[in-house]
């Protein structure tokens, strides 16, 4: 089992619904977020292109955050989901510095926090909150080992990219282009 997510940059309008849905679902404190939106403009007026991406933890196969964690708080869970065990986390921040995607933040309660792919929902057969809420249905989630999962099907059909592949982290967040 290998959980992954694909985000369709052709459909995403950058509304941030994924951000606020994640915040409420996961009780993320106001002022912090586990996912965010990036907009990149190329060209000069009027020859322009705009790419919009909903970003979050890449749940890498080769995660620098897991490798550098001194307490074992950062770890791989079911289906390769990278998690932080709050009780074990001492808030040293090594993982925050090691993440090339800047996907982690220090929670005011003293531990590091990040996207969990909503594992508490996924275990119940639900989709992550961001995927479920998105008005453009631009996000696809599922098991890459299952050829019939939403994410497998869309990756077979569409061109995609990952972010900073040269970092060698083997990210599992795909962007449809």
């Amino acid at each position: 089992m290998r959980y992954a997510m694909a985000v369709d940059t052709k459909k995403c309008v950058g509304c941030s619904d994924c951000v606020v849905a994640c915040q409420t679902e996961n009780n993320v404190p106001i002022g912090y977020c586990r996912d965010w939106v990036v907009e990149i403009t190329h060209g000069t007026y009027p020859q322009l292109e705009l790419e919009i991406r909903s970003e979050r933890c890449n749940h890498c196969d080769n995660s620098p955050c897991v490798r550098c964690c001194p307490t074992g708080a950062s770890h791989y869970s079911d289906g390769g989901i990278v998690l932080v065990t709050e009780d074990k986390c001492i808030g040293c921040g090594a993982c925050i510095s090691s993440c090339p995607y800047d996907a982690r933040y220090p929670h005011p309660d003293g531990h590091v926090d990040k996207c969990t792919f909503c594992i508490h929902r996924v275990q119940k057969g639900q989709k992550p909150a961001c995927v479920e809420v998105c008005p453009t249905k631009c996000m696809y989630f599922g098991d890459l080992d299952d050829p019939n999962s939403d994410v497998s099907k869309v990756l077979k059909k569409r061109k995609f990219k990952t972010l900073i592949p040269e970092a060698g982290t083997k990210p599992q967040l795909y962007f449809l282009i």
Binding site: C15, D17, A21, T24, E132, V133
Partner: peptide, 19 residues
Amino acid sequence: IGNDEDPHCNGRLCPRGTG
């Protein structure tokens, strides 16, 4: 959370509704 039966939102609220 949006009501799946609603033809206005099909179970998906926008950021304002979610917030």
